[in-house]
Simulated assay, not measured.
Amino acid sequence: MTIAEKLTQLHTLFAQMDRALIAYSGGIDSTLVVKIAYDVLGDRALAVTAESPSLLPEDLEDARIQAAAIGVSHQIVQTREIENPNYTSNPVNRCYFCKSELHDTLKPLALQLGYPYVVDGVNADDLSDYRPGIQAAKERGARSPLAEVGVTKAEVREISKFLDLPWWDKPAQPCLSSRFPYGEEITIAKLQRVGRAERYLRQQGLKQIRVRSVGETAQIELPPEQIQEFVLTTDLPTLVDAFRHFGFLYVTLDLEGYVSGKLNRVLAATTASVVGPL
Rank of each mutant, 00 (worst) to 15 (best):
T2S: 15
I3R: 06
A4W: 01
T8L: 11
H11M: 00
Q16S: 13
Q16K: 13
R19N: 01
R19I: 00
L21P: 04
I22P: 02
A23Y: 01
A23H: 04
S25Q: 07
G26N: 06
S30D: 13
S30Y: 05
V34G: 14
V34K: 02
V34C: 12
D39T: 01
V48Q: 07
T49Q: 07
A50N: 05
S52Y: 02
P53N: 03
P53G: 07
P57W: 04
L60S: 09
D62K: 10
D62Y: 12
D62P: 01
D62R: 13
D62V: 04
I65K: 14
A68P: 00
G71S: 02
S73C: 02
S73F: 00
Q75I: 09
Q75M: 14
V77Y: 08
R80K: 14
E81N: 08
E81H: 05
E83V: 02
E83M: 10
S89C: 06
N90C: 04
C95V: 06
F97H: 15
F97Y: 15
C98Y: 07
L102G: 07
H103F: 15
T105D: 11
L106I: 05
P108N: 09
L111G: 01
Q112T: 13
Y115I: 00
Y117D: 02
D120V: 03
G121F: 02
D129P: 03
D129F: 07
P132H: 09
A137R: 11
A137N: 11
G150C: 09
A154L: 09
V156L: 09
I159F: 05
F162C: 05
D164G: 00
L165G: 01
L165E: 03
P166R: 07
P166F: 00
P166Q: 05
D169E: 15
A172H: 05
Q173R: 14
Q173T: 12
Q173S: 15
G183A: 05
G183V: 04
K190R: 15
K190A: 13
L191G: 11
Q192N: 15
Q192R: 12
R196F: 06
R199T: 15
R202N: 13
R202P: 11
L206C: 00
K207L: 12
I209W: 03
R210I: 03
A218I: 03
Q219A: 09
I220M: 03
E221L: 06
P223W: 05
E225S: 08
V231Q: 10
V231T: 10
L232R: 14
L232Q: 14
T238C: 07
T238K: 14
V240R: 05
H245E: 15
F248K: 05
F248D: 09
Y250S: 08
Y250K: 11
E256C: 04
R265V: 03
L267V: 04
A272H: 13
S273K: 11
V275M: 11
V275H: 14
L278T: 08
